[in-house]
């Protein structure tokens, strides 16, 4: 009986098993532009995602960034104040905007 159990566990085991212990996801320091409003960006956005997530959206309109922040507040329930909303939208449009209001 012991032998059968051993064979069964061998058959079901993977060829290569998972890493032992825990993994560590590296931290990447993204080169994000400094400027007016950056403190609000850092305080609000970084709670949920890296700057990479912002940089890799492509250059976008003022309306896009405004709506993106709306989505973070309404859908993802991020506690961003109205004041910060305005500051962040202006910062994003200035540094990662496409020059179009909408």
């Amino acid at each position: 009986m012991k032998k059968i159990i051993l064979i069964a566990s061998l058959l079901t085991g993977s060829l290569f098993a998972q890493v032992k212990g825990d993994i560590e996801v590296p931290y990447i320091s993204y080169q994000i532009k400094m400027g007016k409003g950056f403190d609000s960006v850092q305080a609000n956005c970084l709670m949920c995602h890296s700057f990479g997530y912002i940089l890799n959206q492509g250059p976008q309109s003022k309306l896009f960034w405004d709506k993106k922040i709306d989505k973070m507040v309404e859908e993802f329930k991020a506690p961003i104040t109205k004041e910060d909303h305005k500051i962040i939208a202006e910062y994003l449009f200035k540094h990662y905007g496409n020059g179009k209001l909408k």
Binding site: V25, P26, Y53
Partner: peptide
């Protein structure tokens, strides 16, 4: 591809570390 490898991965094109993309 970036010069930083994530766990159990070779260096890949990297968009974000949190969440990993």
């Amino acid at each position: 591809v970036s010069n930083m490898a994530f766990p159990e991965k070779r260096p890949l094109i990297t968009y974000s570390d949190r969440p990993p993309l």
